[in-house]
Simulated assay, not measured.
Amino acid sequence: MDATVYEAMGGAEAVLALAEAWHRRCLDDPVVSHAFHAGTHPQHTERLAAYWAEQLGGPATYSGGVGDHASVVRVHSGNGPHEQMDGRAVAAFVAALDDAGIPADLRLRDTLIAWFVWGTALLNHRYAAPEDVPDDLPLPRWGWEGTDGW
């Protein structure tokens, strides 16, 4: 049986390192940094890592006490198209894989990049406005073959 994507990338420590590396790169990018102009939660990267970990097959820490998927989607909805920002966020993620020391295994890297591209589109563009997001929106899971139901 295959390890989960979360396990293959190195577990909690690796996901946190990736979240930190990605966030640093976003803040350094003149286009992507705009998304953070209003500031972030003091534990932003830890919360982000828990959110990512749960989606990638890790523990249900995020939905078990940090927050819910609907709230995350509401924060990111209603901002209109921003293809350049999305593309640069993906580029920051790809570079952050190396920064964080994520294994260079091609299957793992391809899976993580596909997940991040899909997640960026889903998070930012599925709902036109925050009030359109259902309260009971489940946290999507992503495995080696992608995800079901989205």
Score class of each variant (00 low, 15 high):
residue 97 L to P: 11
residue 97 L to K: 10
residue 97 L to N: 10
residue 97 L to M: 13
residue 97 L to I: 14
residue 98 D to W: 15
residue 98 D to R: 15
residue 98 D to P: 14
residue 98 D to Q: 14
residue 98 D to K: 15
residue 99 D to Q: 15
residue 99 D to G: 13
residue 99 D to N: 15
residue 99 D to A: 13
residue 99 D to P: 13
residue 100 A to K: 04
residue 100 A to R: 07
residue 101 G to W: 12
residue 101 G to Q: 13
residue 101 G to E: 13
residue 102 I to C: 10
residue 102 I to K: 05
residue 102 I to A: 11
residue 103 P to A: 11
residue 103 P to T: 07
residue 103 P to L: 10
residue 104 A to C: 13
residue 104 A to M: 14
residue 104 A to S: 15
residue 104 A to Y: 14
residue 104 A to F: 14
residue 105 D to N: 09
residue 105 D to V: 04
residue 105 D to M: 11
residue 105 D to R: 11
residue 106 L to K: 13
residue 107 R to M: 00
residue 107 R to Q: 11
residue 107 R to C: 05
residue 107 R to T: 09
residue 107 R to P: 01
residue 107 R to A: 07
residue 108 L to M: 11
residue 109 R to M: 13
residue 109 R to T: 12
residue 109 R to G: 11
residue 109 R to S: 12
residue 110 D to G: 02
residue 110 D to T: 02
residue 110 D to Y: 03
residue 111 T to A: 04
residue 111 T to S: 06
residue 112 L to K: 03
residue 112 L to H: 08
residue 112 L to A: 03
residue 112 L to G: 07
residue 112 L to F: 06
residue 113 I to N: 01
residue 113 I to P: 09
residue 114 A to T: 00
residue 114 A to R: 03
residue 115 W to T: 06
residue 115 W to H: 10
residue 115 W to M: 03
residue 115 W to Y: 08
residue 116 F to L: 00
residue 116 F to S: 04
residue 116 F to T: 01
residue 116 F to Y: 11
residue 117 V to W: 00
residue 117 V to M: 08
residue 117 V to T: 08
residue 117 V to L: 08
residue 118 W to N: 05
residue 118 W to Q: 04
residue 119 G to R: 04
residue 120 T to C: 00
residue 120 T to W: 02
residue 122 L to Y: 06
residue 122 L to C: 01
residue 122 L to H: 01
residue 123 L to E: 00
residue 123 L to G: 09
residue 124 N to E: 14
residue 124 N to Y: 15
residue 125 H to L: 10
residue 125 H to M: 10
residue 125 H to T: 12
residue 126 R to D: 02
residue 126 R to K: 03
residue 126 R to F: 07
residue 126 R to L: 08
residue 127 Y to V: 08
residue 127 Y to P: 06
residue 127 Y to T: 09
residue 127 Y to A: 06
